[in-house]
């Protein structure tokens, strides 16, 4: 109960800040009251749907995710240049591959982060989610490096669950 109270409080604050940032209405009493009402309805619906937990309010691992996104940004930049070079080469020369990537560590959040990271990195897209792995389409066989996927999974699990996979 105590934890859910904290989640509810954080969600309310986040939604209120979001509303103020998007509307820019600070002074008009009526508009602000309507904004407060919309925040209250959103929090109520979150409670009613039963999704008020660490997954919908992921403030606890925001710092770890920040570090992970920094690393991911670098990877995206490198992969982007590789894809652009392949797609703009005067003579196209690519060999697309479908490959299976094992992903059986960590929570659902970790697996989702891992799958989304694969899709975000240009050159590889998660096509299908299977019980203990993903089906990944790669633009060229040079992108389907299993070692790189293992490294990315280790980092995704550490960012989401806070511990390295066994």
């Amino acid at each position: 109960m105590g934890r859910r109270l904290v989640y509810g409080f954080v969600l309310t604050v986040v939604l209120a800040v979001l509303w103020l940032a998007l509307s820019g209405m600070w002074s008009n009493l009526l508009i602000t009251a309507l904004g407060a009402a919309s925040v209250a309805v959103s929090v109520y619906m979150t409670i009613r749907m039963g999704v008020l937990d660490g997954e919908s309010v992921p403030f606890a691992n925001l710092i770890r995710f920040g570090r992970y996104w920094g690393w991911l940004g670098g990877e995206i930049f490198k992969a982007n240049i590789a894809v652009v070079r392949l797609a703009l080469a005067p003579n196209l020369n690519i060999k697309p591959v479908l490959t299976r990537v094992a992903a059986d560590h960590g929570s659902d959040l970790a697996r989702t982060t891992f799958a989304n990271s694969i899709t975000l990195t240009p050159g590889t897209v998660t096509v299908e989610v299977e019980p203990n792995g993903f089906l990944v389409h790669a633009l060229d066989e040079s992108f389907a490096d299993q070692e790189a996927f293992r490294d990315m999974e280790r980092r995704a699990v550490r960012a989401s669950d806070g511990e390295a996979p066994a």
């Binding site: 995206i76 930049f77 652009v84 797609a87 196209l92 975000l120 240009p122 590889t124 389409h137």
Partner: peptide
């Protein structure tokens, strides 16, 4: 570059990668 890639690449799955370039970076 992503748009040109979408034009040049051979099939849907490869074009998808070119579209991803523009969406991310």
């Amino acid at each position: 570059a992503g748009a040109i890639g979408m034009m040049r690449l051979p099939d849907f799955y490869t074009r998808m990668h070119a579209a991803g370039v523009t969406d991310t970076l």
